[in-house]
């Protein structure tokens, strides 16, 4: 029971962090059709910006400034790079963002060095909020939950209740029609790209000190975010939200259950011995492959439901 409660909390925190990253990507992907490989790089930039800013004026201003900076970087990328590349089709865009991701990683290595930087949780939040059966739940994790919940609410309200949100939604599905009605669709693209990058930056600000701020952080976070976006479905914020939480919980609980296929077979009265074919594979326990489960789910959903969990159109 205690393991269950603690794991549930941990899974939620991790899921919400994934959501912060994935929400920006899903907006960009569904609106512009750009599979933005540099999205996780914005996450990394957010963390590094926040580290540098926090050494001068503290964590709280960094929480606002670092995402804004990331948004500016995003806007610049869209206006001066992506928009030109856009004419040459999606493959060109894909390769463009891929190259960009490598450049940003190298740039970060040259600016901040190869080693992790000491980006720490602010002292105000550096205490255990409560203990569940003797395991501390740090206040900072609660803060992360709060920020991501606020963000989810803000995006959702913004997209469904404001005029600009409605225009974005229109441009998402019918860009030509929105353009014909006199809306400046390229500017909306820039806005969405900048906002998506800023969200990733915000995730970096609060994820960088929760994990470790180092040049490899984009590289390790990148693949899982794509899984969430594809799994959740194109153009669906709710799908993205569900997928994030699901991935967080799956990865957390996979660790806790020490079972293997052999145990499952044993339930049906079939014992696996070392002589059984594939005995090695059957005896692999769930924690050993837990981190790979999301990728298995990605493959399955692409085969059986290509539009994703809540997607409105095919990938």
């Amino acid at each position: 029971m205690e393991v269950f409660v603690v794991s549930l909390l941990n899974g939620l925190v991790y899921g919400m962090l994934l959501f912060m990253l994935a929400s920006g990507l899903t907006l960009i992907l569904s609106m512009m059709g750009v599979l933005n490989f540099a999205h996780a790089s914005a996450y990394m930039l957010g963390a590094y910006f926040a580290y540098t800013i926090s050494t001068y004026i503290g964590f709280w201003p960094a929480l606002i400034l670092a995402p804004l900076l990331c948004g500016l970087v995003g806007a610049a990328i869209e206006m001066f790079g992506l928009r030109r590349v856009h004419r040459n089709g999606h493959i060109a865009e894909l390769l463009f963002t891929f190259g960009l991701a490598l450049l940003i990683e190298k740039g970060v290595q040259m600016t901040w060095g190869l080693l992790p930087v000491p980006y720490r949780v602010p002292e105000l939040l550096d205490f255990p909020l409560f203990s569940v059966y003797g395991t501390h739940f740090p206040a900072y994790r609660a803060f992360m939950l709060l920020i991501s919940a606020l963000m989810f609410g803000a995006i959702w309200l913004g997209l469904t209740r404001t005029r600009i949100g409605l225009v974005i939604q229109a441009a998402l599905t019918h860009p030509d029609m929105a353009s014909a009605l006199g809306h400046n669709v390229p500017r909306i693209f820039t806005l969405v790209f900048a906002a998506g990058t800023a969200l990733a930056g915000l995730a970096g600000v609060i994820g960088g000190n929760y994990q470790v701020t180092e040049p490899a952080m984009a590289f390790t976070m990148g693949p899982i975010v794509f899984v969430v976006v594809v799994f959740g479905g194109l153009g669906s914020l709710t799908g993205c939200f569900i997928a994030s939480i699901l991935m967080g919980l799956i990865q957390t609980f996979a660790v806790v259950f020490d079972v293997s296929l052999a145990d499952l077979l044993a339930k049906f009265g079939f014992t696996v011995t070392s002589g059984t074919p594939f005995a090695e594979v059957l005896n692999v326990t769930l924690p050993r492959v837990g981190a790979l489960l999301p990728f298995l789910m990605l493959v399955l959903i692409l085969v059986f439901r290509p539009r994703g969990l809540m997607g409105t159109r095919d990938t």
Binding site: V6, G11, Y14, M221
Partner: peptide, 8 residues
């Protein structure tokens, strides 16, 4: 990316 479940 998150080792908290292992710690639990």
């Amino acid at each position: 990316k998150d080792f908290s479940p292992y710690i639990t």
